[in-house]
Every structure is written in structure tokens, then in C-alpha cells.
């Protein structure tokens, strides 16, 4: 059978392979090469070694955006997951209307980042205007604004994953704990939470990578105002490419650093999940 299928390789594989080369492999390799070059267009690329990377690490805006992003990722991770878990717990109880509530909490997740950003810009600026200030005046307004925005967007999503996890816990385990005399709080911490570890690792991973990769919402809500202080890494890289002539190489070097950070988080996550899987 394999031989028969093999003859059809061009039809089955080539369209995807060709598009994959154009859309991913070629830009990726070119990107790594260009991070070692100085250029404005690819034709005038000149090899310069590690100088782009050195410039990237010497750029105070980039370093600031790194810490700002790391803090943002951690805070959003905690806020999103705590609320999502509580919602999932509440909405798996016997109660009227749980399905409607799930529908409502999930909905913002489907709205695009740019649109979300402008929806919240109106509201947050409306509130801040009462105190005679605005989003563009202080980077911490932007920071908490973004936290509110991504929480609104992603709590419903994580809630769905947690609900799936909660429903997969076999009822007899909870019942056994109940018979053994465990109170609701003990049941939550000693039975439910340990059983939920796979869902928790998935959600933690998703929210931390989402936090690091966030771009559209940042661009639309604050656009880095005031003076680049509310820039997350992705936006900083974008602005280096398209805002500073002659810095394209540095932008590409920053992009490679960014890629390594995101992959690093991915690897760490994989290890953590593997460790948990052994225990089960």
C-alpha cells in the first residue's frame, strides 16, 4: 500500500510543501542569515557578524520592553488562570443558565485584537478622563489596561479548557474522598487540583506564550505611548523594522532573540508536562 501511495506524492504533498517553503522555511532561514547582516533591502545585505545582536542588547528600549513583557506575561498569567479556574468551578455546579454564561464568557475570545484594543481604549480613556488623565500619559495605565483587555479576551478560552478538564475527572474519586470525610476545600486542593494538572499546564503555557507574543492589542490600545514605554517586545521589534531606517538588521536580530525566548518557554513547558505525565 505504501508503494502505491508513494507514487502520488506530488499530488498529496507538493502543494503544502511548496507553500510551506515560501511561507515559512525560506523566510525563516533568510531571517537568521539577515540577523548577521546590515541591509535596507536584501540585495545590499553585508555580513557584519554579531554587531546587530550587540546593538540589540544595548538598545535601552528593547531591554525595557523585555522586562515590561515578562512582567506583563506573569501578571496576565496569574489573573487569567485564577479567574478562569474559579469560573470553571462555578459553572460546572448545578445552576440554572450555566450554558448561557459559558457562551457569554467565551464570546470576546473571537473578536480580533485590533478591534478589542479600540473597544477598550474608548472605555478606559472614558474612565480616566474623569480623573483628568489618559492612557497615553502613563505606561502603567497602559499596562493595567492591557491586563484587563487580555483577561476579558482569554478568561473564557481558558475556562473552556478547565471545564473540559473538570468534566473528565471521574466522579467516583470525588465520591470516595467525600465518604472518607474530606470537606469541600480539602476535596478541591487534595483531589480536584492534582487531577487538573494537565489542564493547568496547558493553560499556563498558552497564557504565557500569548503574553509574550501579544502584538495587535498593544498596537491598538496604547501604540507604545508614552514614548515607547508601554511597548511589549513584539511591538518593539516591529517598530525597529519599520520605524528606524538602517536598523532592519537589528530588528531581525531582536526577532531571533525573541524567537529563542519563546522556544525556550516552550521547551520548559514540554519538560514540565512530561514530568507530570509520569506521575499519573
Amino acid at each position: 500500500m505504501e508503494k502505491a501511495i508513494k507514487k502520488y506524492m506530488p499530488i498529496f504533498v507538493f502543494p503544502t510543501l511548496a507553500a510551506f517553503i515560501i511561507g515559512f522555511i525560506l523566510p525563516f532561514i533568510l531571517g537568521i542569515w539577515l540577523s548577521f547582516c546590515e541591509f535596507t533591502t536584501v540585495t545590499d545585505a553585508k555580513f557584519v557578524g554579531f554587531s546587530n545582536y550587540i546593538k540589540a542588547f544595548q538598545d535601552p528600549d528593547f531591554l525595557h520592553s523585555f522586562w515590561f513583557t515578562a512582567l506583563f506575561a506573569i501578571v496576565s498569567l496569574v489573573v487569567i488562570n485564577v479567574f478562569a479556574f474559579l469560573l470553571a468551578l462555578a459553572l460546572t455546579q448545578k445552576m440554572r443558565g450555566t450554558n448561557i454564561f459559558r457562551t457569554i464568557f467565551f464570546m470576546p475570545n473571537l473578536i480580533g485584537g485590533i478591534v478589542l484594543g479600540y473597544i477598550w481604549q474608548l472605555i478606559i480613556n472614558g474612565v480616566l478622563a474623569k480623573y483628568n488623565t489618559a492612557l497615553a500619559l502613563n505606561e502603567w495605565y497602559g499596562f493595567w489596561g492591557l491586563i484587563i483587555l487580555v483577561s476579558w479576551q482569554q478568561i473564557g478560552y481558558m475556562m473552556i479548557i478547565y471545564i473540559a478538564g473538570l468534566q473528565a475527572i471521574p466522579g467516583d474519586i470525588i465520591e470516595a474522598a467525600q465518604i472518607d470525610g474530606a470537606n469541600p476545600i480539602q476535596r478541591l486542593f487534595k483531589v480536584t487540583l492534582p487531577m487538573m494538572m494537565p489542564s493547568i499546564t496547558i493553560c499556563v503555557f498558552l497564557s504565557i506564550t500569548n503574553g509574550f507574543k501579544l502584538f495587535d492589542q498593544n498596537l491598538s490600545l496604547t501604540a507604545g505611548e508614552p514614548s515607547k514605554l508601554s511597548e511589549l517586545m513584539a511591538l518593539n521589534i516591529y517598530n525597529t523594522f519599520y520605524g528606524r531606517v538602517g536598523w532592519e538588521g537589528v530588528g531581525q536580530a531582536k526577532a531571533v532573540i525573541f524567537f529563542i525566548i519563546v522556544v525556550g518557554i516552550g521547551m520548559w513547558q514540554l519538560k514540565a508536562t512530561r514530568a507530570k505525565e509520569v506521575q499519573q
Partner: peptide
């Protein structure tokens, strides 16, 4: 991440 390949 998309930023890695966006320019190229």
C-alpha cells in the same frame, strides 16, 4: 512567533 519571519 510571527515577528521572526515577518520582514523576510
Amino acid at each position: 512567533p510571527f515577528q521572526m519571519v515577518m520582514f523576510t
